[in-house]
């Protein structure tokens, strides 16, 4: 492996890990409600911006980060309560418009509460590059990869071992049946928004030291996260992670070996090709449609 290739791979993994976290957020909400939450990117923004403003008033990271995640989770819960819940019987397109409206609302609000400027966060542990096989990686990227891994492990434990997680999973498989066995489906829906908002916020905090953050940082990350979730197969946790990583690696490899101007276009072409052959993404549920 040439050092160049290693560099592209490391970069791709870091970028992909962030996409994966955003994609997981999409998947969790989709599982609970069959809603695609286009405001997912705004949770990323809220995580980053809230941390910036909390650090600015003098809080240490140890306090600022949990508070920022909690803020995002609260916004997620409020979004479910006041925008999604009242329209839960509406059509898919209507719900898409509602979440798009919510993302604009949150972005506009962030612009007022904070500002329009870009902000940087200090890396959690310094910014001296670490050399690996001729390539370099920032300590913050190691954090990104490590935390993403930890979250994936924690989520699989949560969905596989805890009662609440199992209830959420059951709801995603069959809502009616879940209701019949006594699962509070509405509560599951409510909590799924909080959980995925928290995930988004973590992504936003992790990436802010690498990329800077601002009120509109969520637009692009939301879009890429959605693409990753679709590529992996909606509703599949492992799909979201693989989708994110693949998307990140494809982008950086395209930028490195083909054309940096067309790297995003190349990524989307690949997604389209995958969908033509696997219409439900890499790990999506297959199955017939009900008549």
């Amino acid at each position: 492996m040439s050092p160049q290739f290693v560099q592209y791979l490391l970069t791709g993994l870091t970028v992909g890990a962030i996409y994966a976290l955003v994609a997981l957020g999409f998947s969790i909400i989709f599982n609970a409600s069959h809603v695609i939450n286009f405001a997912q990117g705004e949770f990323v923004m809220i995580g980053g911006m809230a941390t910036v403003s909390l650090v600015a008033v003098g809080l240490p990271y140890l306090l600022a980060i949990p508070l920022a995640i909690a803020t995002a989770a609260l916004v997620g819960l409020a979004l479910e309560k006041f925008a999604v819940e009242p329209a839960r019987d509406a059509s898919v397109v209507t719900l898409i418009i509602i979440t798009i409206g919510a993302s604009m609302f949150l972005r506009g609000l962030a612009m007022l509460v904070w500002d329009k400027n870009l902000h940087a966060l200090k890396p959690i542990t310094g910014d001296k590059p670490i050399a690996i096989a001729g390539a370099t990686i920032l300590p913050q990227s190691v954090w990104v990869l490590g935390v993403t891994l930890a979250i994936v492990v924690a989520l699989s434990w949560f969905f596989g071992r805890t009662l609440l997680g199992k209830a959420m999973l059951a709801t995603s498989h069959n809502r009616l049946a879940a209701q019949l066995v006594g699962i509070n489906v509405r509560m599951v829906l409510f909590l799924s928004f909080g959980l995925s908002a928290a995930l988004g916020a973590i992504a936003g905090i992790l990436i802010a030291p690498i990329t800077t953050t601002s009120y509109d940082v969520g637009v692009m990350l939301g879009l890429k996260g959605f693409a990753a979730a679709i590529l992996g197969g909606l509703g599949s946790g492992i799909g979201a992670v693989i989708g994110g990583l693949v998307l990140g690696i494809v982008e950086t490899m395209s930028a490195g070996y083909l054309s940096s101007a067309y790297k995003d276009a190349i990524a989307f072409v690949i997604i389209l090709v995958v969908l033509f052959f696997l219409p439900s993404g890499l790990f999506g549920k297959r199955g017939g449609e009900r008549v």
């Binding site: 609302f105 506009g108 612009m111």
Partner: peptide, 8 residues
Amino acid sequence: MMVFGAVM
């Protein structure tokens, strides 16, 4: 932007 989103 906020008003537009709220209207939607």
